[in-house]
Amino acid sequence: MNISRARWSAVVTAAGLFAVILAGCVVPVGGGYEDGGVAIGLGVDYYEPYGAVYGGWGPGYHVAPYRGGGERRDERGGGGREASHAFRPAPASHSIPSIPSHSRSGGGSRRH
């Protein structure tokens, strides 16, 4: 009985020590993902609010990069006056840039 109890106590003690050592090795990484309450280290929980209805783009609704032949709004009949903006407009001497033209596979020319 005494032997059994002593063995049992030793096992429980060893288990406890082992658990403490392991717990010390478990380090939450960064912030971010909550995975069952455990921080996994990836910051993604950002689903958009549900119910967004897309579309409704009228004929003059443009989103794509610019290309040749256009003009800046502040060049259009402004009589030289600068419109009021919350942002700092690009200098009038700067032309409208496009996206890169040089591809990995070659062709086009790279602008810098």
Binding site: G58, G60, Y61, H62, P65, Y66, G70, E71, R72, R73, D74, R76, A83, H85, F87, R88, P89, A90, H94, I96, P97, S98, I99, P100, R111, H112
Partner: peptide, 23 residues
């Protein structure tokens, strides 16, 4: 960013953001 103000329909805004001389 450099911000370019582009023509858009009345009541709308269309702005372009650029860095390194690329849109």
């Amino acid at each position: 960013y450099e911000v370019f103000d582009l023509p858009a329909d009345p009541g709308f805004r269309h702005l372009m953001l650029a860095t390194d001389n690329y849109a």
